[in-house]
Design a protein around this nucleic acid. Structure first.
Lengths: 224, 224
DNA sequence: GTCTATATGCCGATAGAC
DNA sequence: GTCTATCGGCATATAGAC
């Protein structure tokens, strides 16, 4: 019930102690939203975890909607920045497999390694009030289109077989990546290995190589 | 806060008008849980949508926990039955691509075509009280292991390259499938086509075919 | 900036009339 | 089987002291 236009504090405000409180509130909110869901996380719970009282939150934010709105925003921005930065560090003629491995690992790293904002975004997006959700769809869409652009460039260079619907491919890939929040266990296996396996699946498929090698020369495939 | 042992009504009860009310409550609850999330769906809202009053729900169920518990249960059972039934109708020597297409299409059909229970399960599982979640993990695990068994059998027959971690593959596949609840638009494209594209991605990958064919037309796999 | 105190309303659940 | 009435509790949000 907010539709607040303002969002960011002034630069001056970020220098006062308020900035740390404000950030602590956002950090805590992201963690609790991820763990408990949106509706089940009360402002009292957020305040308690920050060693504050519920009423004090309203000095920094106008409403619960505004808090969750910023949490969602930061979540997408963080994974977007991480992936873009990693991909831009690649050699410009990196092949399909290398590009996928790099982008997938960056996305998964932002998602699984101590980033409550990113995983909160995925888990609570469908639970927030519809006006909050609507105002964040464009940022999500930008990120989707970034991936689509990546794949389109690879397709033009002949690294992806023609006829593939790349939008749908991106959605499948997002699903495989984002679903890891439901099962990934850090103790069982490293993240780069998992990223490699997904990149391999999407590049080469499950089917055994027929005769000639395909993309990854490294592994020997003898079944004798 | 329930830990209720009993669950199903007696056969006699299902013959009275109570059965229809009971089923209407479950149907409505599944729809609202899917749309709004678990915590945001009140018993009053469920009752309203059933043209009842909130107190009347307690004739059929002991608690909100019990309602959501049954909704979750039905959701997994429904998709499990759909997939198992479809796969059992396959020829026993169906190849990887055909098996995947069949199972994926069945799973997506249960998920996307008018089955609130199935999509509610996916969306609210992470939001329900932890004791409810715990009591349904075994059913989910059965379904995962069914898929893993499918792939293991195919791997033994040489249809899946060795060295692949099939548990992880199943999780990636589940992610790609379950994420479709977030973006699938029935008007844009048919479900069989989408299932085919995912099956193709997982079978052959994005990489263009090098020289020889890979899986599709060649069915010289016969061991009759 | 953070506190206490409070307004207002919906929540899950129960009791008992019909 | 469904209703009305109600309990105690917790929700978001506000007002004003310090």
């Amino acid at each position: 019930m907010s539709t607040v236009p303002k969002r960011k504090p002034t630069r001056a405000a970020t220098q006062s102690t308020g900035a740390t409180s404000r950030q602590a509130i956002l950090d805590t909110a992201a963690r609790l939203f991820r763990q408990e869901g949106y509706a089940a996380t009360s402002l009292r719970a957020i305040a308690d975890a920050c060693d504050m009282k519920a009423g004090s939150l309203y000095y920094h934010f106008d409403s619960k909607d505004q808090i969750v709105s910023e949490v969602l925003d930061i979540g997408v921005q963080r994974v977007f920045d991480t992936v873009r930065c990693a991909v831009e560090a690649l050699s410009p003629d990196a092949d399909l497999r290398a590009t996928l491995q790099c982008a997938i690992e960056a996305h998964l790293s932002a998602l699984l390694h101590a980033h409550d904002f990113t995983s909160a975004n995925i888990r609570i997006f469908g639970q927030v009030p519809s006006d909050v959700r609507a105002s964040h769809k464009s940022l999500r869409r930008s990120y989707e289109q970034y991936w689509q652009g990546l794949l389109t460039a690879l397709q033009r260079r002949g690294e992806i077989r023609s006829g593939t619907d790349l939008q749908r491919t991106v959605f499948f890939l997002f699903g495989a990546m984002n679903w890891t929040t439901e099962w990934y266990d850090q103790k069982k296996s490293g993240l780069p290995a998992m990223a490699g396996e997904l990149a391999d699946l999407v590049t080469n498929g499950l089917c055994p190589k027929p005769a000639a090698r395909r993309s990854r020369p490294a592994v020997k495939q003898g079944k004798a």
